[in-house]
């Protein structure tokens, strides 16, 4: 073969090879280009409840093609801390939407929520609600209903309608605390009042009453101290109602330490591992379990939909479930309480 012809053939083969290489690289870049970030801001870092929210958020982000920018202040009471994190999310250009479990019901947060709206970023609240109307959706438990359910559980423990009830709530700041207390009292107070009248309609001393309500600021240590004090002050205390994980754990510790497990019943909130073991050991009579995984999951999904201009429900009730010794080992209950097991 003359040198010229050889060169020609070589260049043809080289071209063909290059073309097919281009083809392949061009075709293999089918990877999803990230859609950006969604900020998820929760109330604190130490509680399992928030971890479950994070899990749900990250699953949704993986499905949709986002990254999660997760942050939280150290304390659930640190509203200013949340405001700062919120502002940081607004300033971050990569963040397309913000999902927040608010530490207050809007007094300080409403302002930054408006700022987010001006910056064109969707805001979705989870777990608790704020009064701002700009929020695209609130996804969380119906805390009033949860209070109702807890009340029903308490009443189930007092079939004779006799006994003293103490409440250790977690906060007066946020809607969760307020609503869970309110929902509880909405059922309990009429029930208690009805014990002031006999069947025949004669007045008598209330046989069932709420003797104390205190807030522990979600601090288990504080809850523990408060519970001990309450027991000391009310030796014939029948049942505690603790409105979140922190308060429930503290109350359980106090009751267990004082050897009053089973004698003083406890209806708590959330299903952390610690609380599950308290249920199994009989210290915790029942706990109202929420669906933090779904809050995180739908929070991100709704943020994405709202960002795309789609219509979303303003309110999604992610549901609660009363877990007792009777159903704690039920497979579905387990999976709902520990969403990481469903992976």
């Amino acid at each position: 073969m003359k040198p010229k012809k050889k060169r020609l053939l070589k260049s043809i083969v080289a071209c063909a090879f290059a073309a097919s290489m281009l083809f392949m690289t061009g075709c293999s870049s089918q990877e999803d280009v990230s859609k950006g970030k969604i900020a998820v801001i929760v109330k604190s870092q130490s509680v399992q409840f928030w971890d479950d929210i994070r899990l749900g958020a990250e699953d949704a982000a993986a499905e949709l093609g986002y990254e999660i920018a997760y942050s939280a202040p150290l304390e659930e009471t640190d509203v200013d801390g949340q405001v700062q994190l919120f502002r940081a999310a607004i300033d971050n250009e990569e963040v397309k939407a913000i999902v927040i479990a608010p530490s207050d019901n809007g007094e300080k947060l409403n302002e930054v929520i408006s700022e987010a709206d001006i910056a064109g970023k969707t805001v979705v609240t989870i777990d608790g609600a704020v009064t701002s109307e700009i929020v695209a959706s609130f996804i969380g438990s119906d805390n009033l209903a949860a209070g109702n359910i807890a009340a029903r559980a308490v009443l189930a423990e007092l079939p004779a309608r006799m006994g003293k009830i103490a409440v250790v709530s977690h906060t007066q700041l946020a809607s969760t605390g307020n609503d869970r207390l309110q929902g509880f009292l909405d059922i309990i107070e009429p029930a208690c009042a009805s014990t002031a009248v006999t069947e025949t309609g004669d007045p008598r001393e209330q046989t069932m009453s709420v003797v104390d309500i205190q807030s522990c600021d979600s601090d288990p240590e504080k809850a523990y101290q408060i519970a001990k004090e309450m027991i000391a002050a009310n030796p014939d205390l029948s049942i505690f109602y603790a409105t979140n994980e922190g308060s429930a754990v503290g109350v359980c510790k106090a009751v267990e330490e004082l050897g009053m497990a089973g004698k003083i019943k406890i209806i708590g909130f959330d299903g952390s591992d610690m609380e599950q073991s308290y249920i199994r050991s009989g210290v915790l009579t029942g706990t109202v379990v929420q669906n933090p995984y779904t809050m995180g999951y739908l929070g991100v999904r709704y943020a994405d939909s709202a960002n795309n201009g789609e219509h979303v429900s303003e309110r999604v009730d992610t549901g609660v479930l009363l877990v007792t010794k009777a159903n704690i080992d039920n497979e579905n209950v387990q999976l709902i309480m520990s969403p990481s097991k469903a992976e």
């Binding site: 949704a60 499905e63 119906d142 209903a145 949860a146 109702n148 359910i149 669906n291 779904t294 739908l298 999904r301 999604v316 009730d317 992610t318 549901g319 609660v320 479930l321 009363l322």
Partner: peptide, 25 residues
């Protein structure tokens, strides 16, 4: 009504949301 709305309906809502996500995926 209260029991249904508070304790049962949310399961339905949540499962429907999840199924919608399945269809999308």
């Amino acid at each position: 009504r209260n029991v249904y709305m508070q304790e049962l309906a949310p399961f339905q809502t949540t499962s429907i949301e999840m199924f919608n996500a399945v269809v999308e995926l």
